[in-house]
């Protein structure tokens, strides 16, 4: 073949895909586009005759790196939220059934929906960690096991309407507090920042 003009067009795809990776904001989207870049890079390398480079790009650069980065992003972009669970003991004939339920699921679910809406802008995932006693919840917060705790507050004013319950959220991370603070008027919780002393360090 004497006319190799298609090689120029093929090579132009590589910087195009690289620019697509650079402009992505969401880390997961960037990972998928990185896969596209890897496929195009392997194509260009093999057309230029560098079969070993193309092979390494396809195996290491595309498959292994993408998978490992996806695992890393998935486990680091998470907020662990501690909640209280109510221990309900039901006697059903001879059998004693112990059930763990989150208090008033409807209020709690709407609060979770609000939290997800706020943190979705920062691509944070929320992981709910249940605790049985307030002491265990507080200790977990102080020992940096969870990032924030969310407990219902008994409101004496709202005695008539038992449906609406107020929540109190305590976080030990300044950045989470800053994210939640502007939105606090629209959601059904009060917000507190508590400095957790200790040697362990994990900042988001």
């Amino acid at each position: 073949m004497n006319d190799d003009s298609y090689i120029y067009i093929l090579t132009a795809l590589l910087p195009l895909a690289a620019c697509m990776v650079v402009v992505q904001v969401n880390p997961y989207h960037a990972l998928v586009i990185r896969g596209i870049l890897g496929a195009i890079a392997a194509l260009v390398y093999s057309v230029f005759g560098a079969a070993d480079v193309a092979l390494t790009e396809a195996l290491m650069g595309t498959m292994l790196a993408i998978t490992l980065y996806a695992v890393a992003v998935r486990s680091s972009l998470v907020m662990r939220l501690g909640v209280l669970e109510e221990e309900k003991v039901e006697s059903d004939g001879d059998v004693l059934k112990v059930e763990l339920t989150v208090e008033s699921p409807r209020d709690f679910n709407s609060l979770m929906k609000d939290f997800r809406r706020i943190f979705n802008k920062y691509y944070l995932r929320i992981e709910v960690v249940p605790f049985t006693t307030p002491q265990a919840l507080h200790r977990a917060l102080m020992e940096k096991e969870i990032h924030a705790s969310c407990v219902p507050v008994l409101d004496s004013d709202a005695a008539g309407e038992a449906e609406t319950k107020h929540y109190q959220t305590v976080t030990r991370i300044q950045r989470l507090y800053d994210i939640m603070q502007p939105e606090i008027s629209s959601i059904n919780t009060s917000l507190d920042y508590k400095f957790a002393s200790g040697s362990g360090e994990d900042s988001q």
Binding site: L31, G35, S46, L55, A58, L59, M63, I66, T67, A70
Partner: peptide, 13 residues
């Protein structure tokens, strides 16, 4: 190999 790896990586991701 690109065809194979593309499919495998897609499935994992």
């Amino acid at each position: 190999i690109i065809l194979t790896v593309g499919n495998a990586g897609l499935m994992l991701l």
